[in-house]
């Protein structure tokens, strides 16, 4: 078995196609590469092909054409070798019908983690994921969020080269979500390669080194969060706070600033929200117009584009 050199990509997906019924393509020639130690976020609407991609890469389902390589192993020829070096947190819940503690112990035993390391690692993960109080409870007595925490934590019982996380933070409270994302980030710093799917764009923005936006079974845009924002994020929001209730002047204000070429404008008591391409460059004109009308401006803020803006524009274009 040939292995790719250490410094090359850990996950290589080239022109992969997959159809479940032989007619409609769930994946339509998807291609992307993930570097070692990189967190690659796969963003997409429901049914875009995120979970199908993960299921193919984790050897659960076959693909029709294309090539996939994980840590130098060909997915078609070496699926059993690949399963020894990956970790998977599935979107659906998965747990053994026993206690939280036993779930960790069994995962360690199944993955042949030496007993002394197993115990130590379990204690660390139980602490880290806030499972101390529920460690003796049976899994079916836990809430959805608690089960998810166990499911994510349990996956770190064994060593791996590539981790697949299919919407791992669904059902988690914001504090725990942040904690888990931080832990995932740390693991990537230690060399773990991660493919992460989510519909929460804020968290993708927070932890992913690169993001691929998947639509119709293929990657339609790819880059770092900043690159994507720069490419698609010319849409800005200017928020102006005045000392006057501007609602009654809205028609006159709209007329005076029509040269700004805004896409949308809204008024809320003493606030004006202007949305449009490059509207930030024309703030001076807007303030001048308001001044001419005798409206004093108290504060102006310009909001940068978010990944949400990018995502919406890419999938809706």
């Amino acid at each position: 078995m040939d292995s790719l050199p250490e410094d090359q990509y850990e996950v290589v997906v080239e022109n992969v196609k997959k159809s479940y019924d032989g007619k409609k393509l769930a994946l339509d020639g998807i291609s992307f590469h993930i570097k070692k130690g990189e967190i690659y976020g796969l963003l997409g609407k429901n049914g875009a092909g995120k979970s199908t991609t993960i299921k193919i890469l984790t050897t659960l389902i076959n693909f029709d054409s294309g090539t996939c390589n994980i840590a130098g192993y060909d997915l078609r020829k070496d699926s059993s070798k690949i399963r020894k070096i990956i970790g998977v947190v599935q979107q659906e819940e998965s747990f053994d019908f026993t206690t939280v503690e036993n779930n960790f112990k069994l995962a360690g035993m199944l993955w042949e983690v030496p007993k002394n390391i197993r115990e130590e690692r379990m204690e660390k993960l139980i602490d880290l994921f806030g499972l101390q109080e529920i460690r003796k409870k049976r899994m079916y007595d836990l809430s959805g969020g608690q089960k998810k925490r166990v499911q994510v934590a349990r996956e770190f019982m064994h060593e791996m080269k590539v981790l697949f996380l299919d919407e791992p933070t669904v059902g988690l409270d914001p504090i725990m979500r942040r904690k888990i994302l931080q832990y995932i980030r740390e693991q990537a710093k230690n060399g773990l390669t991660i493919l992460f799917t989510t519909q929460n764009l804020e968290e993708a923005d927070m932890i992913c080194d690169r993001i691929g936006i998947i639509d119709g079974g293929k990657i339609v845009e790819e880059g770092t969060s900043e690159e994507l924002k720069l490419k698609f994020g010319t849409l800005r929001t200017v928020k102006i706070t005045t000392q006057t209730n501007v609602e009654k002047y809205m028609n006159e204000i709209k007329e005076r600033i029509k040269t700004v070429n805004y896409e949308d404008i809204s008024f809320d008591e003493n606030k004006i929200l202007i949305l449009g391409k490059n509207v930030d460059r024309k703030v001076g004109d807007v303030i001048g117009s308001l001044y001419e009308m005798g409206i004093e401006v108290e504060n102006v803020s310009i909001e940068n584009p978010t990944l949400d803006d990018v995502f919406m524009r890419v999938v809706e274009r």
């Binding site: 599935q90 659906e92 819940e93 998965s94 747990f95 053994d96 019908f97 199944l110 993955w111 042949e112």
Partner: peptide
């Protein structure tokens, strides 16, 4: 049945097992 129902069949199938 239970492993299929509670997601462990798939979890085991993505692990080091045939």
């Amino acid at each position: 049945w239970s492993d299929r129902r509670w997601g462990m069949f798939e979890q085991i199938m993505v692990g080091p097992f045939r």
